[in-house]
Amino acid sequence: MIARGMMLGPNQPVILHMLDIEPGLEALKGVEMELVDGVVATTDVVEACKDVNIAVMLGGFPRKEGMERKDVMSKNVSIYKAQASALEEYAAADCKVLVVANPANTNALILKEFAPSIPDKNITCLTRLDHNRALGQISEKLNSEFITTIQQRGGAIIKARKLSSALSAASAACDHIRDWVLGTPKGTWVSMGVYCDGSYGIQPGLIYSFPVTCDKGEWNIVQGLKIDEFSREKMDKTAQELIGEKTLANSCL
């Protein structure tokens, strides 16, 4: 998708730096062979991060049956500490970061902790997948089942294909970066997990999903939207869950 111009437009040359772990190297080389030109395929995090302007962080450790949440968080802290440190030292000064791997909000906070020179506004996480699913469900007018359907769609995909969302997540990541870099269409906004400044009464210091508009490579939270009691309850519940994750991550640092 990136090579075809779906992320940054058809006329933007790109050099792809693809990082994977050693067991994935053979598959990674296969992808490199398909793309041929403008590709760095490596298991070296320093080589992968060298001079990059946009980093899409797909790697993470998923929770497996029988695992405690702290065990999962500890593994993700380890992953994101190493990759954040490499971005901090070797990425371009204007590097924009999108964290996709769950728990994406908290993984983004971990990355921020270990890459302090990357501006707060340059570290985001992917909530566009749920945004895109929500638009799809609204278009089908499944109002009574709306929230449950969106929440459970990822689980339904895992059950069906034994793997997490692939094409839809890739498409959402391209959408996120494209709008961030090239701007949102006039009169519309999108969802991005961004560093919270206290908007809508959400505790500052979290990476939280807000409606945003983007222009000239910058995002801005849409202000003044009316929040009904039902939405307020859901927003506050999400914030409390993220506060709990943040506390857990801090205990693993």
Rank of each mutant, 00 (worst) to 15 (best):
M6E: 10
M6A: 02
L8Q: 07
L8V: 02
P10G: 04
N11D: 15
I15L: 11
H17E: 13
M18L: 14
L19P: 01
E22K: 09
E22I: 02
E22Y: 05
G24Y: 00
L25Q: 06
A27L: 01
G30S: 07
E32S: 15
D37W: 14
G38N: 15
A41M: 14
D44N: 13
E47R: 15
E47I: 14
E47F: 10
N53D: 15
A55R: 01
L58E: 09
L58F: 15
L58N: 13
F61T: 14
F61C: 13
R63I: 11
M67C: 02
R69C: 05
D71C: 07
V72M: 14
M73Q: 02
S74V: 07
V77M: 05
S78P: 00
I79E: 03
K81A: 09
Q83N: 10
A84W: 09
L87Q: 15
E89P: 03
E89V: 02
A93H: 14
K96G: 00
V97K: 06
N102I: 03
P103Q: 01
P103I: 00
A104D: 00
N105D: 05
N107T: 06
N107A: 04
L111A: 12
S117F: 04
P119V: 07
T127P: 01
R128I: 05
N132F: 08
R133L: 15
Q137H: 12
E140A: 15
I147V: 12
G154W: 00
G154A: 02
G155N: 09
G155D: 09
I158L: 14
K162V: 07
L163R: 02
L167N: 00
S171T: 11
H176M: 04
K186W: 03
V190C: 01
V190S: 10
S191D: 11
G193P: 03
Y195A: 12
D197I: 09
D197H: 15
G198T: 14
G198M: 14
I202Y: 07
I202G: 10
P204L: 03
G205N: 04
P211Q: 03
T213G: 00
C214Y: 06
C214P: 01
W219D: 03
N220S: 15
I221W: 08
V222T: 04
G224C: 01
F230S: 12
S231N: 09
R232I: 08
E233F: 08
E233H: 05
M235L: 13
D236I: 06
I243Y: 10
K246C: 04
N250Y: 08
